[in-house]
Design a protein around this nucleic acid. Sequence first.
DNA 1: TTGAAAGCGCTAACAC
DNA 2: GTGTTAGCGCTTTCAA
Lengths: 339, 339
Amino acid sequence: MTKSSPEPRHTLTLRDVSEASGVSEMTVSRVLRNRGDVSAATREKVLEAARTLGYVPNKIAGALASQRVNLVGVVIPSLSNMVFPEVMTGISETLEGTGLQPVVGVTNYLPDREESVIYEMLSWRPSGMIVAGLEHSPAARAMLAQAGIPIVEIMDIDGDPVDHAVGISHHRAGRKMAEAIIAAGYKRIAFLGTQMPNDFRAKKRLQGFEEALSKAGLALVDREFYSGGSALLKGREMTAAVLARSPDVDFLYYSNDMIGAGGLLYCLDQGLDVPGRIGLAGFNGVELLDGLPRKLATMDACRLEIGRKAAEIVAGQATSTDKVELFPTLQPGDTIRQA
Amino acid sequence: MTKSSPEPRHTLTLRDVSEASGVSEMTVSRVLRNRGDVSAATREKVLEAARTLGYVPNKIAGALASQRVNLVGVVIPSLSNMVFPEVMTGISETLEGTGLQPVVGVTNYLPDREESVIYEMLSWRPSGMIVAGLEHSPAARAMLAQAGIPIVEIMDIDGDPVDHAVGISHHRAGRKMAEAIIAAGYKRIAFLGTQMPNDFRAKKRLQGFEEALSKAGLALVDREFYSGGSALLKGREMTAAVLARSPDVDFLYYSNDMIGAGGLLYCLDQGLDVPGRIGLAGFNGVELLDGLPRKLATMDACRLEIGRKAAEIVAGQATSTDKVELFPTLQPGDTIRQA
DNA sequence: TTGAAAGCGCTAACAC
DNA sequence: GTGTTAGCGCTTTCAA
């Protein structure tokens, strides 16, 4: 804008390449789309002209004419925790060879924001959509259902998908963790989580967790929620609060690994015997934390695999099942005592 | 695709809304773009028709006709470290009110990949581009220079921007950290970093760091590089390796906070006196790590501010200076002893 | 193997 | 305040 010396009045068009190469626009178009039916000589002429001009095709025009857009919309709540970047990795990997490109939109766990992100994305007529979660505003659901493209809702399968769903049962994940904790002999269990009314998956885990406790004749002895700030620090603070309020708790179940890690560091600082006196567990299986003094018990969320499977469905590489359920593995780490 | 019952043969067009509302396509278009020059009555009719049909405008056609695309391409090397998500936050915040939307592309520090991401993005004729770093392939530079839109290269200002640059001097950041370390009396200093030939900013920091050492008559006594894996864990391993090889080092300078945190945990595990016997410092000012047993010395990279400023320039809200230099502050934390 | 014509769905520009 | 006309830059289709 400012310094680029030979600023073109309009950006280059096929016509410019056509004139520069002495080949019709149509044939230029064929060459640029790598269609085989062009002679090698013409092909070379065109390619050279395009290269020296610095021509960049106009996908807007191309998409309008061909009614095809090689974009896949990906709608996720956040990029700042460790989970969605890894889902994105799985998606990108799988889309790599297909000619499809992911376009990310972030909702910050706000339903209104999600609705508008979905609207914006659909207005670009993508070839498919991958959306985190099964809970959407009615309008958002309707738009997705109307779009006439593959829709894959990811992360969660406890619910009714618009089209396809790929994920784990968070309800079951919570239950499994509770069962492991109970089996290890812990009895006075507290929950520490995020204050996010729209994090439905965390909510489902807690629900499954409490159901399993209840089935064993137990109930949460305390619970603590936070929002904002450094997760590690919040984990410490929440843990301190819970231990002060309920000094006899013997297990802390965290809604994610980051706050769990903060809690772990706090317990070690306090010289508490982990996992003897007190056990801890998180959720997500975040590799990032592998260098901690103890390995936090957790349950992986199959993030990479979810991304891959979702991308396969959108790319039409998978035989279409409505729901694809993945099964997280419990990683006991060093913070649950062995039964 | 699979379940959506009344799948429209083609997606809805203005014409459908026009027919459903009995208003001309042109007027429908006016209403949908919120142009004031339509009577309230017509407006309502149109809006209702659009709503009940579930019409989503086709931005492809709109963009082609209006020659305007409300997209800003953002090209960054990675989303999995803590730095770019925060830059994105700054960009999104600032773009919020402008009608512009960021579209992210990730290069994984690969120049070829960067070139193709830039090419793809430009082919959608965005209103502006924000690209991390000042080092690009000649072709990428040429495309950006030709695009005829505002280009903002971010993070770094040690170099020659295509159009605008917003960032810090990594060279200076390295120097400043070295000066602080030297002033604190450390003398046997090692560097621990990532093995990334294309992380030019880390390279510049190291260069500035070594220059400052040299000016004080010092030189690095050891250096260690890693790639891949959990940063925290790698930080531990690298630190163990350096301490084994050079037991008399008294300071460890890490190229980022995550490996620095791993190193810190390792030193504490080993019972080393930090910062007395050995000092540590990282880079980035990652808030995430605030809950560690000690606060790691670091230098923030002005991530949020860089995102904001870059977005302002792209949105035309800033008076155009070629380079906007921001100045990181040294956060001494608890891992550099006080002089 | 190449070219010509028509049009994708919308908006700018101008009439009314 | 509303309608009409002519494209935007490509690709599709069909003819040569």
